[in-house]
């Protein structure tokens, strides 16, 4: 009877096989088959946002600490990577690790209030991160290498003689990073530290009296979550947008990532991916639909507004219908399918 491997959702071999097939498709088939549009408009933002959702899920889903500052940590990651690359010219992997470390350090500082504050009050205090980081990045031109507009082009992505600047290259780089981090997070939450995270979330008092290091666990959660979200920021800026600017990392983005984590399913790994898929694909679908029905007859601004209202409504309806998110829905669907096949 294993405590560590057998978790809330034990990894059955069938699931492992499914994941391996999915990875093989993603690494081998997709770069050849996917159209430029699918890679640029869907897969690249999907990967970056999935990673951000995963990072926030570690903090909010597993450790139970609400944060509204995710976009700030994305910004820290992106700008740190930009500056490490610009000023030190380090190899890409080193730049990435340093960017994640910087985001972790900033996350740790803004995680300190969590030692005293809970729930709503903590959420408000993480807003401080959101506003402070955006202010600092805009105020001090040094961060943007004194570019007059504040908008800077992402550097060329190359490592060990390989260039990742092409569309497929950026996709593969993103995918590799997301795969690696997801694997590490999986190992983390299924190991003893995962027990600590959930214990702190579920009952802080009893966690404390049985000797779980509550403060250390919370700070680890903030640091690791911020590191992952920081990496997501690098992907967002370097592989998707190809520009680095503070404006893209605003409060809207923080909420978007929170929605991803909640809609996908808190305290699940695949939830981040399901949530990100919905958040990326849904607006595109809506735009297609509205283009089809109201082509030219309605002002584009109005369409945009309607899209937001529909998306908001869907989120609310969804949360009422399935508070445990897409992940729980998928669980139910597979169970139903299995019982159908089992019967026939």
């Amino acid at each position: 009877m294993s405590v560590t491997a057998a978790t809330i959702r034990p990894v059955i071999p069938a699931q492992t096989i499914a994941i391996l097939i999915l990875l093989a498709l993603a690494f081998i088939a997709v770069p050849h088959l996917a159209s430029p549009y699918v890679i640029e408009a869907i897969l690249l933002p999907f990967l970056a946002l999935s990673l951000a959702g995963l990072g926030l899920n570690l903090l909010t889903g597993y450790a139970g600490q609400v944060s509204l500052g995710s976009a700030a940590f994305m910004a820290v990651g992106a700008f740190a990577a930009y500056n490490f690359n610009l000023r030190l010219g380090l190899p890409l992997p080193v730049t990435l690790v340093l960017a994640a470390t910087t985001a972790a350090a900033v996350g740790l500082v803004f995680g300190l209030p969590s030692l005293r504050l809970r729930g709503f009050y903590l959420a408000v205090s993480t807003l401080a991160a959101q506003f402070f980081v955006q202010w600092a990045l805009t105020k001090f031109g040094w961060f943007s290498n004194n570019s007059p507009s504040g908008v800077i082009a992402a550097p060329s992505l190359a490592f060990a003689g390989l260039s990742f600047d092409t569309r497929e290259g950026r996709y593969l780089l993103s995918l590799s990073i997301v795969t690696l981090v997801t694997f590490l997070v999986h190992r983390l939450v299924n190991g003893p530290e995962g027990v600590n995270l959930i214990a702190v979330r579920d009952n802080e008092t009893s966690a404390r009296v049985i000797g779980i290091p509550v403060l250390r666990t919370k700070l680890w959660a903030f640091a690791l979550s911020s590191a992952i979200i920081g990496l997501a920021g690098v992907l967002w800026a370097f592989t998707y947008l190809r520009t680095v600017e503070p404006a893209g990392f605003n409060l809207d983005r923080s909420f978007q990532i929170l929605f991803i984590a909640i809609i996908g399913g808190l305290a699940t790994i695949r939830g981040a991916f399901l949530g990100a898929a919905l958040i990326v694909v849904f607006p595109l679908l809506l735009a297609r639909l509205s283009g089809f029905f109201f082509d030219g007859s309605i002002d584009a601004g109005v369409v945009k507004l309607v899209e937001r209202i529909v998306l908001g409504t869907v989120i609310i309806a969804f949360l009422i219908a399935e508070p445990n998110g897409l992940s729980a829905m998928l669980d139910r669907a597979t169970r139903r399918l299995r019982s159908l096949f089992g019967r026939s």
Binding site: M1, S2, V3, A6, T7, I8, P192, V195, N196, I198, A199, R201, D202, N203, T205, S206, A207, I210, G211, I212, A267
Partner: peptide
């Protein structure tokens, strides 16, 4: 004062974390 998000085994194991 258990941890509802964990299995029985994990709940028991949490007592050994220290």
């Amino acid at each position: 004062a258990l941890f509802p998000g964990l299995t029985v085994a994990q709940n028991i194991a949490s007592g050994w974390v220290f």
